[in-house]
Amino acid sequence: MFSLYKKEVQSYFYSPFAYVVSALFLFVFSLSFINSISSMSSNVLKFSFSNIFYNSFFYFIFLIPLLTMRTFAEERKSHTETLWLSAPITIPQVVIAKFLAVATVFLLMMVLSLFFPLVAWWHGSVVLSSLICGYLGFFLWSLVCIAIGVMISALTDNPIIAAVLGEAAMILVLFLDNFTNTDLIQSVKPVAKVFEWFSTEKRFGAFSQGLFSLADLIFFLSITVVVLIWTIIIIEKRRQSRG
């Protein structure tokens, strides 16, 4: 399983792919960084990253399908899945290895973005609790998105379609929050409660304010696990009918 994980991580760096996506990631991050610095009106305010995370996540979320689109779709397309189907390794192991590999690449990109807090810390002071929780919430939310992306990649044999469907799923995730706040949903309290429970943005908001809540942590992790289990079921089901 570790071999597969290692190979998956490496595969992002064989081509310029990972570098380009990382560059895009940092570019987006730097833009919102500049934006929030420029909009600071008072010198008294301590600089916090919560807003940057909050704003930039709406861009980042769309980078994740680019990372996950190839995971299973590419294997189906190039007929390489027989390699791990005929090897002494189970499908859950394959799914976990691939998921962890994408998560690792994403983590590397996040480590690169530490550059901005460092710069800020050099010239001023950083609210550490808000920064750590911000990063943690950011990572947890992206885990959910990565799991969704991996699942969508297992549904098709075309990476481009996987990416497009992935983007659609990401839009849906973001849309859910706005939808929850509409008058229509809020007028029916029980429904609103269910929608609120599933809305990721509010939970992420708490993290980015520097508030760590165990319930939110479990929420993100459990959604990730559920989506990964679906992925395993999808692959197992497809295996029944492959030629």
């Binding site: 071999s3 597969l4 290692k6 390699l83």
Partner: peptide
Amino acid sequence: TFAAGLKG
């Protein structure tokens, strides 16, 4: 090498 690892 990767395939060897995968095959245990």
